[in-house]
């Protein structure tokens, strides 16, 4: 006879369900409906909001704009969600960046195996000149945050 049984779970922003799942009685397969742990209700947003400087910095780095306050709020919620990680004790734990970390990955020989495909590569670019991709003038920073919105809107 098998039944779900309660036990311990690490507590983060998740709180204990607190109950044990009853072992099924002989013949019946009763399972307690109380879960193991709970996802706590989203707390109200913390007082500390992201600053205008940060927003400006992120927009320049990401080259996408928040567009409106909903976008900013989305970031604040994403940070708040991520903050739950700080409740995990990771002392002495090495970061893991690939599931193949213990394997020797394939490296091909440093030889040219394909090429001569300029035409194919250029055909998906909307502006080209001779055999080049064509870009507008470079080395001009984005306008300041307050002017950026109207500036970018011109393009729509």
């Amino acid at each position: 006879m098998w039944a779900l049984r309660g036990g311990r779970c690490l507590r983060a922003a998740w709180s204990w369900g607190g109950s044990r799942l009853a072992r099924g009685a002989t013949g019946g397969r009763q399972i307690d409906q109380n879960p193991e742990w709970q996802l706590e209700e989203q707390k109200p947003l913390p007082q500390k909001k992201v600053t205008m400087e940060l927003l400006d910095h992120l927009e320049r780095l990401a080259l996408v704009d928040f567009r409106n306050w909903e976008g900013v709020e989305r970031l604040e919620k994403a940070i708040q969600f991520a903050d739950q990680l700080h409740e995990v004790n990771t002392e002495g734990i090495e970061p893991m960046d690939s599931v193949l970390e213990n394997r020797c990955l394939y490296l091909r020989g440093d030889n040219i195996t394909e090429g001569n495909c300029t035409k194919e590569l250029l055909q998906n670019a909307s502006q080209t000149a001779e055999e080049y991709f064509e870009a507008p003038p470079g080395n001009i920073p984005l306008p300041k945050l307050e002017e950026r919105e109207s500036f970018l809107q011109d393009s729509n």
Binding site: V64, P136, G138, L142, P143, L152, S155
Partner: peptide
């Protein structure tokens, strides 16, 4: 948008 490369990227 063709004022600058950066603004073309952003737009």
């Amino acid at each position: 948008m063709d004022k600058s490369t950066e603004s073309m990227y952003a737009a």
